[in-house]
Simulated assay, not measured.
Amino acid sequence: MSRIDSHQHFWIFDPVRDNWIDDSMKKIQRNFLPEDLSPLLSENQFSGCVAVQASQSEEETNFLLDLASKNDFIKGVVGWADLRSKNISERLSHFSQFEKLKGFRHVVQGEPDDFMFGTAFRNGIASLAAFNFTYDILIFHHQLPAAIDLVKIFPEQKFVIDHIAKPDIKSGDIASWKRGIEEIAKFENVWCKISGMVTEADWNNWKPSDLKPYLDVIFENFSADKLMFGSDWPVCNVASDYKELVKTLEDYMSQLSIEDQNKIWFNNVKSFYNLND
C-alpha cells in the first residue's frame, strides 16, 4: 500500500521570519529540507508528500516550487499569495503555470476572528476556482463559525481543514469544537486533514487515548472519502517522531476496511490535490 503525506513543511530557519518557532520549540529551530524528510517517508511506506507554506510570502511559494522541481517525491505544493490583493487573478494566472502548485493557504489562525468575512479575502477565494486551486483552512477551533460561513458561500471551491481545526486537546475541551466540526462536515466541498493533533496535546506526556475522542469526532462526521493523513513534519517533532505519529493512526484505523484505510493514506490526498503519479 502506497501512502502520501498530505501536510508537511520545509524551511531554511530564519529566527526573524520564523519567530513563531520560539524557544519552547528549540528542537525545530534549524533547517528542514527534502533530504531530511526523504528517509522518513521511505521508512514509513510513503511514496510522496505535499509541501505546505509556513511563511506568508511569494518567496516561500517559489522556494517550495523549486524544491518540488528537484525532488520527485514532493507531489504537490500549497503556496501563499496575497488573496486580498487587487491583482490576485493576475498572480494566480502566473502561478498556474507550475504543475505542482495545487492550492493556497493563509495563516488565518494568526488573524482576527472576522478575517474570513473580509471582502478582499473573499474576492481572493472567489478567484481560486477558475484555476482549479484548492484552499487549506488553517484556524483555531474558535474560528470555526467563520469557516462555516466561508465554505457555505463558495460551494464550488474545494476546501480542506488543516489540523482538525486545532481543538484544545491538552485541556480536554471538546464541546464547542465538536459542534463546529459536526456543522462544517455537512458541506460536500470540505475535506479534513488528520494532522497537527500532537502539538495541540501535552507535548511531553500525550498518549493515544488523549487523541481518541477527537479522532472519533472527525471519523464520525467526515466519511472515509474526506479524510487524509498529514504529519505536520517537522512541527510534530516537538511532541512526537514521525514513526510514532504514523503508528498512532495505524492503530486507530485498524478497525476500518483496507479500502477505507487506503483512501485516508493515499487516494483522498491524490484526488483532492489532483496529484500526478
Rank of each mutant, 00 (worst) to 15 (best):
M1V: 12
I4P: 04
D5V: 06
H7D: 07
H9W: 09
H9Q: 00
F10P: 05
F13T: 08
F13R: 09
P15G: 08
D18P: 08
N19C: 12
W20F: 10
I21D: 05
D22S: 01
D22P: 05
D23I: 12
D23V: 12
M25P: 08
K26F: 12
Q29G: 05
F32V: 07
F32D: 04
L37E: 05
P39A: 04
P39I: 06
L41Y: 06
L41V: 03
N44I: 05
S47M: 12
S47F: 09
S47W: 03
C49D: 11
C49L: 10
A54K: 10
E60Y: 08
E60A: 03
L64K: 03
L65M: 01
D66W: 11
S69M: 11
K70C: 12
N71D: 08
F73I: 07
K75M: 13
G76W: 07
W80K: 08
R84E: 15
S85L: 10
S89I: 00
E90C: 11
L101H: 04
F104N: 07
R105Q: 07
H106Q: 13
E111F: 07
D113C: 11
F115K: 08
F117E: 15
T119D: 15
F121Q: 02
R122Y: 10
N123S: 14
L128I: 08
A130G: 14
N132E: 13
Y135P: 08
D136V: 04
P145K: 04
P145T: 03
L150S: 01
L150I: 01
V151W: 07
I153W: 00
E156W: 00
V160F: 15
V160Y: 12
I161D: 05
D162Q: 02
H163W: 04
I164C: 02
D168W: 08
I169Y: 00
S171H: 03
G172L: 04
D173G: 13
G180A: 00
E182R: 13
I184A: 00
K186A: 14
N189A: 06
N189W: 09
C192E: 07
C192L: 08
I194Y: 03
S195N: 06
S195M: 02
G196M: 00
A201R: 03
N205Q: 09
W206F: 06
P208H: 01
S209H: 09
K212Y: 12
Y214C: 04
D216H: 02
I218L: 05
F219T: 13
F222P: 03
A224L: 11
K226L: 06
F229P: 05
G230L: 04
V235S: 04
V235I: 11
C236P: 00
V238R: 03
V238A: 02
A239M: 04
D241N: 14
D241T: 03
D241R: 03
Y242F: 15
K243L: 13
E244I: 14
D251P: 10
S254R: 13
L256Q: 14
S257V: 10
S257T: 15
E259D: 15
D260W: 07
D260I: 01
I264W: 07
I264R: 09
I264Y: 09
K270F: 11
K270A: 15
Y273D: 09
L275R: 06
N276E: 14
D277F: 00
D277K: 12
